[in-house]
Structures are given as structure tokens and as C-alpha cells.
Design a protein around this nucleic acid. Structure first.
Length: 482
RNA sequence: GGCCCCGUCGCCAAGUGGUAAGGCAGAGGUCUGCAACACCUUUAUCCCCAGUUCGAAUCUGGGCGGGGCCUCCA
């Protein structure tokens, strides 16, 4: 079974064949650091984190580059509003970015370049493009001449004539063609700037990604990723710049993640449904957010709502409950050298799903089947005395944990700890204290010992009415949120 | 207006030519003092119409509905 990926460039799933056997180079557009990250950023970063992890898991030596855009109009404006430098602002939000990404369990990429560290390379590409006649300097700006790049719009599949009809040249721009875009912008007063052959200025947005990707991955590399909204103009322009300058093919496969909607509406500041990652994490566990995002195919739109998040929490709890129960069920049983093959079978199905364009939803469905098998095995009569079943449970438990940990970045907590954390978080939203629950449980245990079932049920129903469900087992009585 | 994507059970969501995964919720059963948990069983012919095919949710055409990009955006 080989890995297949959906390539925006061809509009089809293609067999993944790296440029260099055994190695993968991937570049994903990162964030412009002028504000806190929202759940759309969470999705993009989680999706490409899993893609990165899966390449490594599949044995590829993977170089993952994710940049920071730390020079940009929005940064400059925001910094000016606050009376600090662009650098101070961007550094602050880089720290905030890491806070959020770490919470979501996102691995650090191999390289995390900042645009401002690549000014020399940016200037060099601009110069090459000017020398080749594909770009021109005008009034301290440098513009890319789109008509000089024959395959412009090949990624976004748009029509040049129609694009031109709607394009405008903004006041102050020196473009020859409205579709041309800025590679270099002349410095205005109060803006950060660098010296260049065209005078003091700063890079345009698109050029930085061309510079950073070629510097760290070479002119040609395997995977380029980002959100759907970057297809035009950002990625289209990157192709024009990079291929125009190098004369070589740029990224081989273009991967784009779908959007996050909120209650079925596009998330936007004007609609007031804009959620930052840290706001969401006040209500939902980070792993629940991660799990939720991975239960959909990465290219589909996903709807962020309380109901969907609650369901994700139930689903993830099912995993942790089963992992917890399995762990306990085999804890006191001596190890044996039996190999069940259950884990290998599950792993094969998991890989098959992931090989099909990183279908995490399908992969998770297979893991759920593993959970059911696990639960079925450990509730078998005299389970602990059946060495073959014990071996299956150990194998399956270890496999679910390993696939979850390494590829999906899930199930990383100690099950009982995680379940406890979620319970306590839920409790905080109810009008009841832990002490009250424990007191009631004690009272009910006593009533049951006295065979006073009427009272026992009364206590249970009263707690249930307040959102607390009791669970009796051999070990005693525990509780969970309804 | 141009380009692109989507429409599968009450909800979420896989499946892209061979007879509908999985989760949540629901029903019945086992377990239980009664419950809950867990397990077992069970719940759809895939927006509509026409066509291609031995065979279509999957391909083609038309319609209806939803969304995205075309300006900064994950």
C-alpha cells in the first residue's frame, strides 16, 4: 500500500513519490504574528502536524519548515497603535503562538524561519527576477510582472482576463499591470526597513515564503501546505516567484486544509464568532479540540459548535476509559511471550486509512473498533486466566496507544488523570461540589449495606438530577458527568 | 459575474463503479437489588430528475440547496 495525497495542482489524488527516495521536504505557511491564534490556525497546525508525524512514522526522513511572517502591514499598524516596535510585537505573539501550539500538542517543525532573517535571500530573488525581465523596479518598489510567467494561475485555475477586469491599482502603486504584485515595498516613514538596491524598504508578503523555502529545502521540494484561502494569491504568487527565479519546478504536491466554521457560519470578526485558541481551551480540553479536528478529513470544512465539541469529548473519553480499563485488567497478570497479531492487524488498517490522503477520520474509526475489541476482551469471564486473551489486550492496548501518540498526538495523558481532569472541569460548571458528591456516595453506600434501596435510589436520582451519574463496580462507587 | 468545493441515518462523519465504516444520541437484550458503565443486537439506498453501465452514493448532464476564493486571512 502506498501513500496517496490530494494535490491541489492536479485536482486529484496522486501517489506520493518523493523527489529523493526516503526523504520528504515540506513547507507550510505559518502565521502573521500580530494577534492571538484562532481555531482556524489550530486546525491548520494540527492537520500539518499530523501529516508531518505520519511521514516520519512511515519512515521518511522529514524536514518540516513552518515560517513566521514578522514584517507586514498588520504588524506595523498594530505596533504603532501600541507604541511599540514591530519587532517587540512580533516577538510577543511568537511566544503566544507557542503557548497555544504547545497546549495543542503540536510538535516543533525542523525549521521555523522568520521573514526578517531572510532579507538577503529575498533581495537576491528580486534581483534575479529583475535580471530575467520578470520583475521591475518602480519608485523604490519592485513588482512581479505576471504576464511574464506563462503558467500563472495554474494552481488556482483562474482566468487572467477576468481577473484583470476586476483588478485595481491602488493609489501610490506603480504597477504596469493591475495583476502585478509587490515583491519589495519602498519604506514609508515609521516603518521597519532594510537597505536594498532599490533603496530602503521591506519585503512583500509572498516573496518571503519563496526565500525561506528555497533556502531551507532547495528550489524544488515535495510538499507545500497551507489553508485553502492561501491558494490565491499567496501560493500562486509563490509559484510565480520561485519557478520564475529558479527555472525549476517548485513544490510537487500542494495540500490545503479546509476551513473552520462556527455554528455553520464562516468564522469572522464582523460576525462576532471569532474564537481564539485560548478562549476555547478555557472550556474544552486541548486534546478534545485536537480529537475533534482529526475526526474530519482535513480538506472538508468543519463546524465548530458546542454540541460537536461535547460529542468529541464523549468520543475521546471512550478511548481513555477503555485504555484505563485495559491497563488495570492486565496490571496484575504476569507477562507472557504470546503474540496475538491483533495489534498488527489494527496497525495495518490504520496505515491504510492514513495512506489515503491522511484520512484521520477513517483511522480513528479503526481505533474505535480496537476499543470495542478491548472492552469485549476484558469483560470476558475469567479473562485474567486466559493467557491468549491477555496477550491480545496487551497488544491492542499498546498499539492504540502507540498509533495515537506517535501519529495523531492523542492519548498522551495518563487515562485516569485525564478522565479526572475532564470530570473536575465539568464539575466546575455544575452547581455541586466534590465534597457534596462524596458525602452522598458515602450515605448511599451505607443505605445499600442496610438494604435500604429506597433511600439508595433516592440519593442516586437526586444526584442524577443535578448532573451526576453514579457507577457501581466491584471496587466501589464512582461518578461521572451525565 | 468567473473559478472551486460540498449535499450520506436525529446529529457528527468515512466510503468516489460492485451492492452503505465509525462516533454521539435512540430502541431491545445481557449484566445489576434497581440503575449506570461495558458488551450483544438493532436504526439510512445516499438532495431531486435524466443518462452511461450487467451493476452508481460513487461516472455524465440538468435542476435545487449550501459554502469558499476572486481584497488581508489557516
Amino acid at each position: 500500500m502506498s501513500l496517496r495525497v490530494y494535490n491541489t495542482l492536479s485536482g486529484k489524488k496522486e501517489e506520493f513519490q518523493p523527489l529523493v527516495p526516503g526523504k520528504v521536504g515540506m513547507y507550510v505557511c505559518g502565521v502573521t504574528v500580530y494577534d492571538y491564534c484562532h481555531i482556524g490556525h489550530a486546525r491548520a497546525n494540527i492537520v500539518f502536524d499530523v501529516i508531518y508525524r505520519y511521514f516520519k512514522f512511515s519512515g521518511f526522513e522529514t524536514t518540516y519548515v513552518r515560517n513566521f511572517t514578522d514584517v507586514d502591514d498588520k504588524i506595523i499598524n498594530r505596533a504603532n497603535e501600541r507604541g511599540i516596535t514591530s519587532r517587540e510585537l512580533s516577538e510577543q505573539f511568537i511566544d503566544e503562538f507557542y503557548t497555544d501550539m504547545d497546549a495543542l500538542g503540536i510538535e516543533r517543525p525542523t525549521h521555523e524561519p522568520k521573514a526578517t532573517e531572510y532579507i538577503d535571500q529575498i533581495i537576491a530573488i528580486c534581483q534575479t527576477l529583475i535580471d530575467k525581465g520578470m520583475a521591475y523596479a518602480a519608485g523604490g518598489d519592485v513588482y512581479y510582472s505576471v504576464e511574464k510567467f506563462a503558467s500563472y494561475l495554474k494552481l488556482s485555475k483562474r482566468n487572467m482576463d477576468e481577473m484583470q477586469a476586476g483588478a485595481r491599482i491602488a493609489p501610490g502603486e506603480q504597477k504596469r499591470n493591475p495583476m502585478d504584485f509587490a515583491l519589495w515595498k519602498a519604506a514609508k516613514p515609521g516603518e521597519p526597513s532594510w537597505d536594498s538596491p532599490w533603496g530602503a524598504g521591506r519585503p512583500g508578503w509572498h516573496i518571503e515564503c519563496s526565500a525561506m523555502s528555497s533556502s531551507l529545502l532547495g528550489d524544488s521540494f515535495d510538499i507545500h501546505g497551507g489553508g485553502r484561502d492561501l491558494i490565491f494569491p499567496h501560493h500562486e504568487n509563490e509559484i510565480a516567484q520561485s519557478e520564475g527565479a529558479s527555472g525549476k519546478p517548485f513544490a510537487k504536491y500542494w495540500l490545503h486544509n479546509g476551513f473552520v466554521n462556527v455554528n455553520q457560519e464562516k468564522m469572522s470578526k464582523s460576525l462576532g464568532n471569532f474564537f481564539t485558541i485560548r478562549e476555547i481551551l478555557k472550556t474544552y480540553d486541548a486534546e478534545v479540540v485536537r480529537f475533534f479536528i482529526l475526526t474530519a478529513q482535513y480538506r472538508s470544512p468543519i463546524d465548530f459548535s458546542d454540541q460537536n465539541l461535547m460529542e468529541a469529548q464523549s468520543g475521546l473519553s471512550r478511548f481513555y476509559e477503555a485504555l484505563d480499563a485495559a491497563q488495570k485488567a492486565v496490571a496484575d497478570v504476569p507477562e507472557s511471550d504470546q503474540n496475538s497479531g491483533e495489534g498488527a492487524r489494527l496497525e495495518e488498517k490504520f496505515r491504510e486509512a492514513m495512506d489515503d490522503d491522511f484520512n484521520t477520520a477513517q483511522a480513528i474509526a479503526h481505533l474505535f473498533e480496537g476499543v470495542r475489541t478491548l472492552n469485549r476482551l476484558i469483560t470476558t469471564k475469567k479473562f485474567a486466566k486466559k493467557a491468549d486473551l491477555v496477550a491480545q489486550v496487551r497488544d491492542l492496548h499498546a498499539t492504540i496507544l502507540r498509533l495515537g501518540n506517535e501519529v495523531l498526538g492523542l492519548f498522551l495523558s495518563e487515562p485516569s488523570t485525564w478522565l479526572e481532569k475532564v470530570r473536575m472541569a465539568g464539575l466546575a460548571r455544575l452547581d455541586i461540589t466534590l465534597e457534596e458528591i462524596e458525602t452522598q456516595i458515602e450515605a448511599r453506600i451505607k443505605a445499600r449495606q442496610d438494604k435500604d434501596f429506597a433511600k439508595s435510589d433516592e440519593i442516586r436520582d437526586a444526584l442524577a438530577a443535578r448532573g451526576i451519574e453514579l457507577l457501581d463496580s466491584r471496587e466501589g462507587t464512582s461518578w461521572k458527568l451525565k
